[in-house]
Write a protein that binds this DNA or RNA. Structure first.
Lengths: 362, 362
DNA sequence: GTTAGCACTCTCGCACCGAGAGTGCTAAGA
DNA sequence: TCTTAGCACTCTCGGTGCGAGAGTGCTAAC
């Protein structure tokens, strides 16, 4: 374990480097942080910290900068969380206050706010769609030969798609199909609804429908493809990419290029944002993706109806204002969860009696 | 007008500069393009061209580079269109061949292909939604207290939104509302469907429905907000942002930053992509947006059912491979239009007889 | 009108140098 | 034994100077 003085020195180095982006020397530290000892002592401590792997020296006669390990120790042991500044809180309160009900617009705004406040790159992973429980699957005739398939889950999630109908499929057929699928699938978690299951169900159904078999087959296949297919991909919202260019560690164009390329690869971003609930911090080499080996990714999950369903993240240099970013993400996750709660359908659906009862006398 | 020889020299300068990115001198031109005259003559012509505004000199003893005017002349008079290379054509044919029916996925792929083939930034403006003609407006009960509103137009465009129902609204009410709105609005272009019109209709309707008036009012208002509101915004897809960093003219980080910032401003991009049908080329200072004053934007519209509804664009330095980019965009627009035609609902809807008739005997 | 020749200009890369910052080591002091 | 002052040493960084190279503009000859 590190002696208390070493911890103090390490903390001072990290703080100083985060705010100046310059390698910090013992003299600077001596002048600006009063550590109670001379620069020579600090120098010795810094030499020790370097040997232990917490600091690095860009070149012999430069100051030192924290290593990934140094940041890690700082985040785990030294950093103190401070609440988000009033002004920023106010800015973020827009999200639940705005009354926006479109998930898409809501998340774009969240992403924009995150990058604006943090001055780093923001990433927002949309609510996962493989969790919810199916409630209704409906085929709605729109007009002759056109119908819409609607998938409705308990997590205020609706998906729909237009289907072109084979000739001579009747509205009753659609109703029958809707009822059948809903009856057999309602209550099942979406992740269970695989291609095989659907196909099985579907074949079963066709037995009863021999007369129209051929016509329905085509339609059913389209439906199966949709439900089982990748249609349910989760979107990633990015924002503030230009912020990265303000960071002195990203003056190297090749580095920036790699990062920009990453931001266009949705699958990689998904991988990057697969995180457990709560706040996580991944520093430099701790990251699996090579493109972010010199970056830190801080994430926080947000919830809908108490269940973590999506991820907010900040991507920046390892020299990041950790305390600020963490409280920012926590606060924003709260706001977003709140915004979702405001417009939650589930609540309304799950407890209609209560709500009706409460509202009626007014 | 320019003498033929001047045109030849200008063309040679543009071609040379496009491929090397270095200011071109009279000697280089003499060596690589055989213009039939000596370097001294070329030198004189170049001096003239500079005086006329077609060329510029970065500094006294450097070669020359084309000015915006020079590029303009090149594009309008000198450049010869050549067909897209086989390999690239093949790549782009994926789009109509893939069978993808989700507009969103289709356009992401188009954007990706465009940037990949061009090595510049690609922009894709989704199909405009204010054009189509409303066919059906439907309120579909999903379960108790939850319904979905569906807007269906002739341009294979469907929008939908979940509505939480006020207590004690009956499914019949929904059907009534659907029928009423559809009857009154069907056949109208979406752009005519404004808040005022809807409100008028809606008030009219309430007359007939006095009994449930209060309950329906809330629902109707939500509907009006949706239809009249900005819900129908058109998405912009971007791709290949990292390509810009490969261009020697974008080594200046501040320039890159401004461009990246622009790419996150949807409204500005909309403005940038508001173009007339066909191919347009906007060079450097011809652009209104300051952030792209050193760039060229080439656009091409694509069509659904013969009507131009969206825009493909390439954004790159003014030193751009114009001929290639133009044929790329034209070809891609064709592919995309084709892809839309494949999945067009309108065709099926508009001419069901024909299609049915043609299909039935098979 | 075209071309060869030539003097002139400007950039770019390279080496050099001195200032400044920071280190490591040593020796003296507590 | 730990701390500190002092000092020599190292390394970067910005500025300067210089020569090579590329290109021009001008002049005079064809």
């Amino acid at each position: 374990m590190l002696s208390e003085r070493k911890q103090k020195v390490l903390e001072a180095v990290v703080r100083e480097y985060i705010s100046t982006a310059e390698p910090v020397g013992s003299r600077t530290l001596f002048r600006r942080h009063n550590l109670g000892v001379s620069s020579a002592t600090i120098r010795n401590e810094m030499a020790d910290l370097e040997e232990m792997g917490y600091l690095e020296q860009p070149h012999t006669s430069a100051g030192r900068i924290p290593s990934d390990l140094g940041y890690r120790f700082y985040v785990d042991n030294l950093m103190q969380a401070n609440p988000l500044p009033e002004g920023e809180q106010e800015l973020l309160r827009q999200v639940p206050a705005s009354g926006i009900t479109e998930t898409d617009i809501l998340l774009s705004q969240v992403s924009r706010l995150l990058s604006q406040v943090s001055n780093y790159i923001s990433l927002v992973l949309g609510p996962r769609t493989d969790r919810g429980v199916l409630r209704t699957l409906k085929l709605v005739p729109l007009e002759e030969h056109v119908a819409m398939a609607v998938l409705f889950t308990d997590q205020r999630k609706v998906e729909s798609r237009v289907l072109v109908l084979p000739p001579q499929v009747e509205p009753e057929d659609l109703e029958g199909l809707s009822r059948y699928f809903t009856r057999r699938l309602a209550g099942r978690p979406l992740e269970e609804i695989t291609g095989e299951l659907l196909t099985t169900l579907y074949l079963e159904l066709l037995e009863d429908y021999c007369a129209k078999r051929d016509r329905l087959a085509e339609l059913g296949q389209a439906l199966v493809n949709w439900l089982a297919g990748g249609g349910r991909r989760v979107k990633v919202y990015t924002g503030g990419t230009q912020n990265i260019l303000r960071q002195p560690e990203f003056q190297d164009l090749e580095k920036v290029r790699r990062l920009l390329a990453l931001l266009e690869e949705e699958e990689l971003l998904h991988k990057l944002l697969e995180r457990e609930p709560g706040v996580t911090v991944t520093i430099g080499q701790e990251n699996e993706l090579p493109a972010v080996r010199e970056c830190t990714v801080v994430t926080s999950t947000y919830s809908v109806d108490g269940e973590p369903v999506g991820v907010l993240a900040i991507l920046g240099p390892t020299r990041m204002d950790y305390a600020h970013v963490i409280s920012l993400l926590e606060y924003m996750a709260g706001c977003l969860s709140e915004a979702f709660a405001n417009i939650s359908v589930r609540r309304t659906v799950a407890m209609p009696k209560q709500k009706t009862a409460a509202k009626e006398p007014v």
